[in-house]
Design a protein around this nucleic acid. Structure first.
Lengths: 196, 196
DNA sequence: ACCTGAACACCGTTCAAGT
DNA sequence: ACCTGAACACCGTTCAAGT
């Protein structure tokens, strides 16, 4: 409802424009009118974040667990990056709304059918969420003006053990995200194998 | 130098107090005097972040790679959490200062002796940094007033597959951090084994 | 030439004054 | 009783006015 307007502002003008006053003028109403519907700025951003997650589809329960984990995490990533205005907030706070729980449950279920104990499934899901959050934050920052993150690549390339003449994957890129995702999934597989 | 005062303010009053004006009054000088030494607020926080990393010790090169990876990442985590005022900034931006590069090089070296190709070592180090960043952000947020993160645990506990009567590890806790670290290391081990 | 601090353009939120 | 918008207490940064 009100979150739609906030999403529009964020998509158009970036995260720094997602301010009470700016959103209010988007709606053509007084800034204080927003406080009729939400407690404060943070609560509003939470609502917007959950709305952005509505686009994430939960995978078929019958699919192999690796596929399901990859599908959910990729879904979250692309849904978040579709609305760059809210991505930083999504990366900084756990989404506890309707869609957040729906997605979280799907992730837990997938990890459960991987053979992890319920406790380990929760732990592992938190690891995945942590990795996801950082990847989103990096992807957003990488798109920013100053090009600071390109400096990272250059700094890494200047290190003694750097691969000469090899193109490095940009921090926050989809390829780098996939690499880490597979690394973690491999870790889960090893954990399950060791536990049996 | 100037970063010391900023660290003191941050430690005492939290991240939200790390403002140009607040730091200036800590030093007893005009807020504008800070702009003589740094370009803007972000550059100042970068300097503070690098200073906080000075406490991280690089492990013995002769130790097994797993130990070295764990030592470096734990070192970063405890150094960051020793100065909660700067932790969010440290988690949000790659530290490119002197200590940041020193630590990054140590991490790359450890991953190199694990048997990863130079390119994969860089990729894996980025995964570790991403996980570290989120863990730090969670640890800081977990300590905040509102107790929002405790809600996460409760929400998880309410899920169908939740472990009944089992104490969940808090998001951002040291135990949860260790679990993820070992998961990633296990993933690295599996990657190396598969590549040979 | 250098440094200070008043001023600008914001921000989230409170709260008294209107209807 | 409800809603508006002026006002408060900030913020980072600019820039003209002082030395």
């Amino acid at each position: 409802v009100i979150a739609e307007a906030a999403l529009a502002v964020g998509d158009r003008e970036g995260p720094r424009a997602m301010t009470m006053r700016r959103i209010a003028t988007e709606l053509g109403c007084d800034p204080m009118a927003l406080y009729r519907h939400v407690a404060d700025r943070e609560a509003l951003l939470d609502a917007v974040a959950d709305r952005a997650l509505a686009a994430v589809e939960v995978p078929d329960q019958a699919a192999p667990w690796e596929e399901r984990v990859l599908a959910v995490t990729r879904g979250i990533r692309s849904a978040a990056l579709a609305h760059p205005g809210i991505t930083p907030h999504l990366a900084a706070r756990p989404p506890l709304g309707r869609h957040g729980s729906r997605i979280g449950a799907a992730l837990l279920a997938a990890l459960g059918s991987a053979g992890l104990s319920p406790v380990d499934a929760v732990r592992t899901s938190q690891v995945l969420v942590a990795y996801l959050a950082s990847s989103l934050a990096m992807a957003v920052h990488a798109g920013e003006r100053d090009g600071r993150w390109r400096q990272v690549s250059r700094a890494v390339a200047a290190l003694p053990e750097s691969p000469p003449g090899h193109e490095l994957m940009a921090a926050g890129s989809a390829e780098q995200f996939e690499y880490g995702l597979r690394l973690i999934v491999a870790g889960v597989r090893a954990t399950v194998a060791a536990g049996e």
